[in-house]
Nucleic acid binder design. Structure first.
Length: 221
DNA sequence: GCGACAG
DNA sequence: ATCTTGTCGC
């Protein structure tokens, strides 16, 4: 087969996403986690910095943390975030030096145009249970959760529910919880609720976010 | 054609 | 994501 015209720069990537999305499994968590990881990326001066943290479960006691830095090689394009950040996230997670039972990723899971947000992509790539925690929605619509803390509303995409909008803190905008891989809607919500400690973001993602920004790294005069 | 658009 | 000081509100 010979292609006719020029192919969009992300056609190959989109095709890979559609293929990997078929590997995503939405099912109850295999068992109660013992170690939960959190990952996030930040960037500064064309350098990507991925941070991973490891917490005991359900105490949420810090057990390990790791950083990975590398040059930005791929631009951010909505719908293709994983091609920009996944490798760095995996490296940071490897830096933890031990396996974990679940990973919470800063980004979307199945709430994605082709069903493979970065949380799902990471879960499939590492063959580990994963879920996404994002601060806004890439696709789909959601029912605004009530004003009371822990209120929830479903996230809809193509007539089916793909996650939850969660009011994790009073007065704060909701966060979006979506299954990544080897977990289901109820499991993703349950784990997220149990990982909250009074902040808008659950501990795994919140701590990874702080670490990626760098401890005592920001100071301007 | 126009607007939306994880981080 | 990042650029940025002070400021409004619980």
């Amino acid at each position: 087969m010979v292609r006719k015209g020029p192919v969009g720069p992300f056609e190959g990537a989109a095709e890979l996403q559609r293929r990997l999305a078929q590997e995503v499994r939405l099912c109850p968590l295999a068992g109660e986690p013992r170690l939960v990881a959190g990952v996030d990326c930040s960037e500064r001066d064309r350098t990507i910095r991925a941070a991973a943290v490891l917490l005991s479960w359900p105490e949420l006691t810090p057990a390990a943390e790791a950083l990975f830095e590398g040059p930005c090689r791929v631009p951010y394009v909505p719908g293709f975030l994983s091609f920009r950040e996944l490798d760095s996230m995996v490296r940071a997670l490897e830096g933890l030096g031990m396996p974990f039972d679940l990973v919470m990723v800063d980004g979307c899971g199945i709430a994605h145009p082709r069903g493979l947000g970065i949380a799902s992509h990471l879960g499939v790539a590492l063959n580990v249970p994963s879920l996404g925690i994002s601060k806004s929605l890439l696709v789909g619509s959601f029912e605004e959760p009530g004003p009371d803390p822990l209120s929830i509303g479903p996230i809809w995409l193509n007539r089916s529910q793909v996650g939850w909008a969660l009011r994790s803190r009073r007065g704060a905008r909701p966060i979006f919880v979506t299954p990544g891989h080897m977990i289901d809607l109820d499991g993703a919500l349950d784990v997220t609720l149990r990982a909250l400690r009074g902040y808008r973001l659950p501990e795994p993602t919140r701590l990874a976010d702080l670490l990626s920004k760098g401890p005592c790294q920001r100071k301007k005069r």
